[in-house]
Amino acid sequence: MKWINGLITLSFLIFVSSGMAGDIKGKVKVRAARNSGNVVIYIDKVEGKVFEPAKGHSVMDQKNLEFVPHVFPVVVGTTVDFLNSDEVLHNVFSPDCPDGKFNLGTWAKGIMKSFTFNKPGISTILCNVHPEMEAYIVAVKTPYFAVSDKAGNYIIKNVPAGNYTLKVWHEKRKAKPREVAVAATGETAVDFELKR
């Protein structure tokens, strides 16, 4: 079976690298919110394909009593290093991580502690020393995702041509998934409106 998976992956890579891929671009509107940023737009899955996380670790910073970034999409299997950049102690814990609750303790400035997100889903990230701090790690099965800017703009680049389900996630608002047909070249426009 391994050689079949390998063949599929190889075909996929050839497919993408040969230019048979397009971009999904659009705008999200978050109703009753200060802005339309921090919406994660992502392709839920690509049939028959399992994606590996990017090599190396990703970093979520704790700087000036804030998690940076506030919303952090990663591919399932990604290890995230939590860095403390403040001259105060910080903690990282998650009460709802799909991999199970965790608490990494506290650590000093310049030091990182790591956690690997092996299951898809949303992990709320909190600091039990500073209750106002929160962030979200969104573990998804594909590398085809984007986070909207404050104006709601987003772009997912190099998506292989095909039919997909495009989903969105926001910490307070929701929208229904959209079916999207990505052309071999060019852009496919998909907009969302998120409501309560």
Binding site: N84, V88, L89, N91, G105, T106, A108, N128, V129
Partner: peptide, 14 residues
């Protein structure tokens, strides 16, 4: 007077 030197811990709370 604070600072984080030598303050790492496996448990924490305010």
């Amino acid at each position: 007077i604070g600072g984080t030197e030598g303050q790492g811990s496996s448990t924490s709370a305010f």
